[in-house]
Amino acid sequence: MNSLQAIQQQMLQAVLAERAHLPFTIRGDAIADADSRLAVYRHGYRIRLRDALKNEFAGLRSMAEQRFQRMLDKYVAAHPSEHYNIRWYGAGLAAFLDYARPWREQPQWAEMARLDWAISTAFDAEDEACIGMVELSSVPSDTWPGLLLSLQQNLHILAAHYNIEAFRRAADRGDKRPRLRRFEQARQILVWRKAMSVHYRLLEEDEWQVLSAVIQGEPFASLCERMANLHDETSATPRMVMLLQGWLEAGLIRGWSFG
């Protein structure tokens, strides 16, 4: 390791540590002593980490209000950045809120953080082509039972017992913060990106069951069978058609194959 690399490594360790020996390269003067100079770097580094998290977790900021700053301070103290790109620093925040006191006593915090992070990562995901009804209509009708749909890789489905989507939507629109609600049964939230816009919405129970079957690689005949088990004969087929049209219009489907 050359002298420059050694100096950089010493400075890195000193900035990351809460208490550390001063690198020999830091010198005090009449304006500030060596400890004060190092404190400026330590403080500034942590401020930049917190600012990055504030931008990524808009829903959590709205939900937590005055507690948000303390959450971030505790996370920064417990989890030094391990990636050269600060953009990925928030990847562990939801897990931190799952286990750290006092946040783990209120699971809405971790749920909200997961939705915020899913929205953030969907926006940064690789661009993927999507198909529409015109492309899918070219599939011969006798091959549809074995049709396998491929979903966008930027798609996320999150289970939520709280109305976290309402907090995120209020934050996105600049609306008044909603009241927290808890539901006995977890609801499923779909997150995806179409072009340059990230979308999120609640899934109805039948759509969730069929979409999860798509994710598991089940053929179209199996999707229709699942829908038939959820609805009567007269409504199952129209509902399946409506869902498929909606997925195509939303840009959820990137292609198809045959099993």
Rank of each mutant, 00 (worst) to 15 (best):
residue 1 M to K: 10
residue 7 I to T: 12
residue 8 Q to T: 08
residue 11 M to F: 15
residue 12 L to F: 07
residue 15 V to Q: 12
residue 16 L to A: 12
residue 16 L to S: 04
residue 17 A to K: 13
residue 20 A to G: 11
residue 22 L to P: 09
residue 26 I to R: 15
residue 28 G to V: 15
residue 36 S to M: 11
residue 37 R to C: 04
residue 39 A to Y: 03
residue 41 Y to H: 12
residue 52 A to S: 15
residue 52 A to Y: 15
residue 55 N to K: 12
residue 56 E to G: 06
residue 58 A to W: 06
residue 59 G to F: 04
residue 62 S to Q: 12
residue 65 E to A: 13
residue 68 F to S: 10
residue 70 R to Y: 11
residue 70 R to P: 00
residue 75 Y to F: 15
residue 76 V to C: 09
residue 79 H to P: 01
residue 96 F to D: 05
residue 96 F to V: 04
residue 99 Y to K: 04
residue 101 R to A: 07
residue 103 W to D: 03
residue 106 Q to H: 09
residue 107 P to G: 10
residue 107 P to K: 14
residue 109 W to A: 12
residue 112 M to W: 02
residue 116 D to L: 08
residue 119 I to F: 15
residue 120 S to F: 15
residue 122 A to L: 15
residue 123 F to L: 11
residue 126 E to Q: 15
residue 127 D to Y: 06
residue 134 V to I: 09
residue 140 P to K: 14
residue 142 D to H: 13
residue 143 T to W: 09
residue 148 L to F: 05
residue 150 S to L: 06
residue 153 Q to V: 01
residue 153 Q to G: 07
residue 160 A to P: 02
residue 162 Y to Q: 13
residue 163 N to T: 03
residue 165 E to Y: 10
residue 167 F to T: 09
residue 171 A to K: 11
residue 171 A to E: 05
residue 174 G to Y: 10
residue 176 K to D: 01
residue 176 K to I: 04
residue 182 R to I: 09
residue 184 E to D: 13
residue 185 Q to E: 07
residue 190 L to H: 06
residue 192 W to I: 02
residue 196 M to K: 13
residue 206 D to R: 06
residue 211 L to D: 00
residue 214 V to D: 00
residue 225 E to M: 06
residue 226 R to N: 04
residue 228 A to E: 07
residue 231 H to E: 02
residue 233 E to Y: 07
residue 237 T to D: 00
residue 238 P to S: 03
residue 239 R to E: 00
residue 239 R to K: 06
residue 245 Q to D: 02
residue 246 G to N: 06
residue 254 R to V: 02
